[in-house]
Amino acid sequence: MTETADRTRRRWLVLAVAVAGQAATSTLVYGLPFLIPALRAAEGLDLAQAGGITVAPVLGVLVALIAWGAAADRFGERVVMTIGMTGTGVGALAAALLPGIPALAASLVVAGVFSASISAASGRAVLGWFGPTERGLAMGIRQTCQPIGVGIAALALPPVAGAFGYRAALLVPAALCLVCAVLVALALLDPPRQPAKSVAATRSPYRGGRLVRVHLASALLVVPQFVAGTFALTYLVSEQDWNPVAAGALLAAVQALGAAGRIGAGVWSDRVASRMRPMRTIAAGAALALVLWAIGDQVAPWLAAVGLVATMVISVTDNGLGFTATAELAGPFWAGRALGIQNTGQNAVALAVAPVFGALVPAAGWVWALLIAAVVPVAAMALTPVKGEGIG
């Protein structure tokens, strides 16, 4: 096998392992909203309280991302991801077994802290193995991990919770994370590291405002994604009288469309040599989808379902673009930290969406809550730094 062929084989192996690891953690970090009906029934919680508990892992992610990114910059991706996958699995196991709501929430936060390592380190690994002309595709594939993980959660968690309780359902992400910890330890390969060619290569990439604007626009675009992802099942069950298992099956199928959309957006960005122009277009689409959902809520259930599905699909396709742009602007010596900052902003917004939107719905109704949410991606369009973009 030639050196080029060996490198090709290795980079796709790294990408596959990164997707598997991030998908496993996503079943916990982003899949818990599918347990909201079971959690409310078992514990007597209102919508805002249950939503707050299901985003507890996101709080853990939020406080740890930058530190894990710095660790990946210094120690490499393999060791960081192995520790992170193991800790996430153990935290999820504790959440399933320890009694009481406080112990549940604390265990989920701890699991989130460890899962933060995967976001920064796996993205850094993909950046190191793929060049600029394929990076959008590679990052798009890597970003399918979240829809895959959420899709697994949508299929597995509601029926397990219905049969054995929501605590038993937490054993699903625990098992997935522990299995993937072994996979990462055995198969993940750190990319070759090149010495800095100049002092400029190691300087902070935050000089000027472009990278900051990428972070801000990406954070705002989390709002439509998490409005749909957190409340879709609850909306279909409580407002449209769907069966929870049937709704979960639909939403799992939607995740496949979202995964395909992320790959398509990555290829699109490679073809047009721009991450920001496609990202701005996607922001416009997310705003329109939320408006369609709001109109459908008043006009016809089928139209509301179309708007909901459109929001879920469109709102996730930009993630890989912001992630890729961040890595490219930061460069290899700052990528881990910059990706940590990128994800910190996104998860800070995600953490606020569940309780804020959960409180807004009973106060203003679904229509106004959705229309208010639609304003946010419009603001993201204005922040997206299209002018003067270059990739490499």
Rank of each mutant, 00 (worst) to 15 (best):
A175E: 05
L236H: 02
A175N: 03
T144F: 06
Q240W: 02
R207M: 02
Q194K: 14
Y206F: 15
R203A: 15
A228L: 12
V184F: 02
Y166F: 15
A253E: 13
A256C: 13
Q225M: 15
R142I: 00
V223C: 09
C177G: 11
Y206K: 04
G208H: 04
G208I: 05
V212D: 01
A154P: 04
A156L: 14
G140Q: 13
A252Q: 07
A153H: 05
P132R: 09
Y166N: 04
P205Y: 09
V184E: 01
G229M: 02
P192I: 08
L155P: 06
P224Y: 00
F226H: 12
L216V: 12
F164W: 14
V126D: 08
Y235C: 04
V126K: 03
P173M: 03
F130I: 10
P173T: 04
P159D: 07
I148V: 15
V182W: 07
L216T: 04
L137Y: 05
G208Q: 05
V172G: 04
P191G: 08
V227C: 13
Q255I: 09
R203E: 15
L170V: 12
V184Y: 00
P173N: 03
V227T: 13
A181M: 01
F226W: 12
V223L: 13
L157E: 11
L221K: 00
P192M: 09
A201I: 03
H215D: 08
E239A: 15
L155Y: 14
V227A: 12
A246R: 13
Q143T: 05
S198E: 03
F164D: 07
P173Q: 02
L216Y: 00
A175P: 03
Q143L: 03
A247M: 08
